[in-house]
Amino acid sequence: MNNLKNFTKGFIKENPVFILLLGLCPTLGVTTSAINGLGMGLATTFVLVGSNVVVALVKKLIPDKVRIPSFIVIIASFVTIIDLVMAGYVPALYESLGLFIPLIVVNCIVLGRAEAFASKNTVFSSLIDGLGMGLGFAFALTLLGAVREILGSYSIFGYKFINTDGILVFVLAPGAFFGLAYLIALMKKINK
């Protein structure tokens, strides 16, 4: 029951993007299409789960004073892994996400969960927490990406449903801000 709660809280109630407002840089930067958002979300989920598990495993070995630098090294290692894996297996997606893959390192969600949850809880519940938060993040990015893709290029996951150009501004930078603004307002309403 507790684990189930841990898992589901990341989607609506404590959604990292809509409610906690963490990790907004990749949220705004990569969501020009639903597939980009999903890819970024899953890459972050991998890093989040990996770092949460390792931090929970070694939490007793790390002296309190060098806690944060050690967490950062653990996170950076997982980011390097996903960076190399994506460059090898999904080069097209890797190209379009670009700079934001190495920047997962400074995503506040990852360090935040390591510090606030994994350093105090068991390995299994840290894994669940990482998975829940990561998928919540992926959900938010996919949603925003879908909204921008539908309005901006009249297509969804690459399938065009109206054969004309969309409202271009939603694919460009301002559309990211507008889209996120209204989704946050909507989530606030749903949560009430």
Binding site: L21, V169, L172, A173, P174, G175, A176, F177, F178, L180, A181, Y182, I184, A185, K188, K189
Partner: peptide
Amino acid sequence: KGMKGVPAALVMAGILALAFM
């Protein structure tokens, strides 16, 4: 009321981004 705070700030950031374009 629903737009108060962060959403309104984000809309403003969007208009600013539009201006910078």
